[in-house]
Each structure stands twice: as structure tokens, then as C-alpha cells.
């Protein structure tokens, strides 16, 4: 059994390693939803490979449009895989901090004894 500090450090290290591996090893094929969209649009068959030129046509008429600061988990082509690593590591740490912050906020709002994470 490990203590809370080791759990946090070990858990974050594993998560960051998975994220870094994803930059280099993740499949470039579309995911299930994207593949389905390509089939519907005639860009791919159900069981066949995805052509390299296949692209999903998005009908944005009457839809909301939003530009994320780091689309596709990257910082742009110029930054290459370094940008990908920074984006995913940043996102992993952000998810961790948002979880901690949210629980702290809920606990502080609810009682006078907020959680003390590293006391164990």
C-alpha cells in the first residue's frame, strides 16, 4: 500500500507517460464516430481502410462554432510533437487540478474542514 503523496506522484507520472506515448503512438485513423460519419458521407466503407484523403464534411449552418486554443491536442504544426507533448501534459495536469479544485470548492462551501490531501 502506498501513501497519498506517492499515489498522486505515481498516478500523475503514469498519466503523463500515457499522454506522451499517445503523441507518438496513437493511431491516426478516425475514431468510431468519425469513421461512421465518413461512411455516411461516402468517404469510407464499413469494414475497409480509411483513405488518407478522407475528410469529414461538417455542415456548420445554424450550428455553434468554437475555436479551441489547442485543437487536436497540438500547438500547431510548427511546434510538431513537442507541441503535442506540451498540450497533452498540460491537459492532464489541468484535469488533475480541476478535480482537486472542484472538490475543495465543494467541501469549503459545505463545511469548515476542507480536505487535506497530503496529510496521510
Amino acid at each position: 500500500m502506498i501513501d497519498n503523496k506517492s499515489l498522486i506522484i505515481g498516478g500523475l507520472v503514469i498519466a503523463i507517460l500515457i499522454g506522451v506515448m499517445a503523441v507518438f503512438l496513437a493511431s491516426s485513423d478516425p475514431d468510431g464516430l468519425e469513421s461512421t460519419a465518413l461512411i455516411i458521407q461516402g468517404g469510407k466503407t464499413l469494414t475497409g481502410p480509411t483513405p488518407p484523403t478522407a475528410e469529414i464534411q461538417e455542415n456548420l449552418e445554424g450550428k455553434f462554432a468554437y475555436s479551441a486554443p489547442m485543437p487536436d491536442y497540438s500547438l500547431g504544426e510548427a511546434m510538431g510533437s513537442t507541441g503535442g507533448i506540451l498540450a497533452i501534459v498540460g491537459g492532464t495536469i489541468l484535469a488533475f487540478l480541476v478535480a482537486i479544485g472542484l472538490v475543495y470548492a465543494l467541501k469549503i462551501a459545505g463545511n469548515k474542514n476542507p480536505p487535506r490531501v497530503l496529510d496521510r
Binding site: 498522486i8 498519466a15 500515457i18 492532464t92 484535469a95
Partner: peptide, 8 residues
Amino acid sequence: AVLAAGIF
């Protein structure tokens, strides 16, 4: 918190 980071 670790699960949130890991799932991300």
C-alpha cells in the same frame, strides 16, 4: 484527481 488525469 488521479483518475481524472488518467482518463484525460
